[in-house]
Structure formats: C-alpha cells, structure tokens
Nucleic acid binder design. Structure first.
Lengths: 244, 244
DNA sequence: CAGGCAGGTTTGTTGAACAATCCTGTGAAC
DNA sequence: GTTCACAGGATTGTTCAACAAACCTGCCTG
C-alpha cells in the first residue's frame, strides 16, 4: 500500500536511553486491526501500547520520520496521534525539539498518590456501591489472586489497576474515569522505568480483597481508613524502591 | 500575508442555533497577540475565549473553511486546535460531520457537581492551607464583593470560579488543576447556554467569604460541611433554573 | 581551549489534491 | 400528496510535497 524505505538507523545515536538495536522495528504490529477508528487514534493506540509495555523507555525521543516510515502514515497523522498521547500525559512535547516519552520523577509519584487519595476515598465516601459493583470488584480480585498464583505478573498488575479504576468508576463521572486512566497510565510509566521491582503489586492483592469485603459490608468509614492506609503504604513502598 | 476571500455566508443556514448575522466575523481578534505559543495554541485560545464568552453558543457547528478563511490559518492548524478544544471537552467531534460546541445537559450539571464535591472537599481534607493561601482566598472574595457591588456580573463570576480553583490548587496537583479548569470551563458553557439567569453567582459570594474564614480558623470539619452544603445548594439552584 | 559561524537535520506550518462520507434537492413510483 | 432512491454538491479525513524556522553538529578561527 505504501512504499516503506525501511532505512536503517545510522548509529546508536547517543540519545538519552540509547535505543538497543532498533526500537521502532518492533512496534509495527496492529495498525490494521481495530478498525472503525480514525487513523490517528489507531496510531496513538500502537504507541500507547508500546510505551505502557515498556518497549519504549521513558525519556526516549519519538522522531517523526522514523515512525512515519515504519507505520506508513503521514507526518500529519502521526502528529495528530502525538497530540492525543500528550493529552494523556504519556508524552511531552518540547517545542522545536520533538516529543519525548514522559520521564516520571519522584514528585510525579507523590502527585499520583495525592490524586488517588482524593479520587478513591472521594468515590468511597460519595458513591453507593451497588451489589453489581461489589460483584465486579470481587471478580477482579479473584482474577488477581489467580494471576498471582500463576505468577503472571502482568495480568496481576492489570487486575490491580482495574480494581482501583472500578472504585473510581462508582463516582459515575466520565471525567474522573479519564483522569484515573491518566494516573494509572503514568503509574505504568513508573513501572516501565523501574525494572528492579517488577512484583510491586503482589503485596497489595490481599489489601484489595479486604477492601472489597469492607465495601460489601457497607462499612464506609473502615473502608475509607483501609484505603488511605493502603495508598500511603504503597506510596512509601514505591518511593523506597525508586533508588535513583 | 494571506489572501482572504472573505466570502459571505449565503443564507442564515438553518443550523441548530442559527447564526445571527455572521458569528465568525467577530472572533478574528487577537491571533497576533500572545506570541511565543504555537499557532494551534493561539487558534485554540481564540476559539476558547469566543466559546466561554458566549459568542458561539452550544450546539453551533464550527466549519473548517469559514474559520480558516477568517483566521488565515491552514486547515491542518485549525484541526490541531480543534483537538486541543476537544481534550478540554469544550467541543465534540462527530466523525465525518465536523466539530460542534458541546451542549451541556442536565446530567452534565449533575456530573460537574459530583466532581466538584469530590475534588474540593478532598482538597480541604487533604491539604494544609498556608497563610499565603488564606490570603489569596480572602483577596479573591474581596474582589468578588467589589464586583458584586459594582454589578459587574462577569468579573464576579470569574472571581467565584477563581476561588474554587484556588481551593483545588491546595491539593498541589497539576492534573487536578487541569481537571478543575475543564470542569469550570464546562460550567461557563452551561451559563453561556442559559441567558435567563445571569446573576447566578451573586448569591454565593458570601458563602465563599464564610468558607475562607472557616479555613482561616482551621475548622476543617466545619469548612467541609459548609462546602458540601454550598455545592449541593448550588447544584439544586442551577437545576431549578435550567427549565429546558 | 573558547567562541562563532556555516551546514545539515528536525520540527512547524502551509497549500493542493484526492477519497470517503454526509447533506440536499430533485424526480420517479405508488 | 407522500415516500423512496439517487445524483450532485459540499464537507471532512488523509496524504503528499514543499518551505520556513529552530535546533544541533562540527569545523574553523582566534
């Protein structure tokens, strides 16, 4: 459909976080799939997945021509996709310099947990947890426990994130859902940059189980206290293991 | 610099919310000012101001060629600006149909206040209100009272919004600040579509004064209760006057 | 070794073109 | 007279090609 010159990179280009071999060769995958979405959306999805999966490390520059050559899309379409990623905070645009994968800092982690404390406890305080919601939470924790038993770290991490997204969803606000998605995406960015502590989530699966039970028993205040402690603990845990 | 054919609109184009005379003739203003920002940013600012000021009413379609002709920018640049506005929720993109100014619904108002209850009480609970913050809040309420006395509705409305933005800012999170900005922008959209009740804010100036004093006296719980009642009351007030 | 300048590279923006989709109005069929 | 189908025009979505502006690199001079 489109001629792809497939030019080799010249040298490892002593950029920050130098690219091992050639990063961009690996992310060509599913631009075709997931139709019915606009091309920029699909491009953004490809890049989003690559970043969240840790294929493209924080701080890496995303050069326009390399990616357009690789994906076979126009520069305009790619720039449009960049704007979507920038709105998610996954990527930051430095004027006349290009776009770079956001590099999370220690302050980012503190902010993430400040937000989560407000959002998640706010949802617990303000929302009524229907029996369907309780069932969903229990289903997610059950999946997380199975994944932990099977030592499927990625699946467990995703289940844990879904659990907390589900809690925020009880506030019934699409804007809060979006914000929580952004926050969790930034959390994944933190994990992607931190190879040394991959099983961070495993210690918190049982905490989620307990939280779901407290919510099921309508023990609001106890659930809130449990959640606050959970979040404070996770924050400290993460900061301890961040050893810059 | 660019030839602008300045083509007249043919007929009042029986669009929803038909355009009185010609809307687009009036928003050409400050594209030149506020330099050091990219062109799409400046275009977005022009449109944002026009929308927030009520120049372009909710539901209005934003046709590409008319605006590009008027502003003298490329269609690409305008589309880029549209994406920024869409990220703010000011505008919605209907595929193959174009972009339209978001039309707030009753459910939007309920969501706005669900969010504000969580965000603002969360900030009150989680943040320490420094003496500088207290002074800033007092300064804003003083300005609001002066504007109310001078019957400058717009200035009073803006001061009221600044007050609540300032409360959220105490949570020290740029992402929460952004979300609050989006929420308040949507509030302005509600007011823009509702000409019948322009002095909505005047009743709430004294409520803000009281809240600032409670915060100054470190009466957290009372401040939180006051805030919750304030928000519940404002929501009901707004819904009553929405008479669709 | 420091600083400045020229060159190449990358981004930012525009214009033109075309495909795809939507909207409109006309005409035919019932 | 109403409804349906279809053709035509208008608008959006995407790509290609080009150029201006900013940045980065390396050489060259002092």
């Amino acid at each position: 459909m489109v001629s792809r010159p497939l030019q080799r990179l010249r040298e490892p280009q002593h950029d920050e976080t130098a690219s091992p071999a050639d990063i961009w060769d690996q992310l060509l995958t599913p631009l075709e799939a997931a139709d019915h979405a606009s091309v920029p959306d699909r491009v953004a999805t490809v890049l989003r997945n690559a970043i969240s999966a840790g294929q493209v490390l924080p701080g890496t520059k995303l050069p326009e021509v390399k990616i357009t050559d690789r994906l076979g899309v126009s520069r305009h379409t790619l720039r449009s996709a960049f704007q979507l990623l920038a709105a998610d905070g996954l990527v930051e645009r430095r004027p006349n310099r290009g776009v770079f994968v956001h590099e999370p800092t220690e302050e980012d982690i503190r902010e993430i947990y400040r937000i989560r404390r407000i959002l998640e406890t706010g949802a617990v305080r303000a929302a009524v947890f229907s029996s369907e919601a309780i069932e969903e939470l229990r289903g997610i924790t059950a999946r997380a426990e199975r994944s932990r038993a099977a030592e499927d770290i990625a699946a467990m991490a995703q289940a844990n994130q879904e659990f907390h997204q589900c809690i925020v969803a009880q506030a019934r606000s699409s804007m809060l859902d979006e914000l929580m998605s952004k926050v969790l995406a930034r959390m994944r960015l933190v994990f992607a940059g931190m190879r040394s502590y991959p099983d961070f989530h495993s210690g918190y699966v049982t905490g989620n189980v307990q939280l779901a039970e407290l919510l099921a028993q309508q023990k609001r205040q106890e659930a809130e206290d449990h959640l606050i402690n959970y979040l404070l603990e996770a924050e400290q845990d993460l900061l301890r293991h961040l050893t810059l």
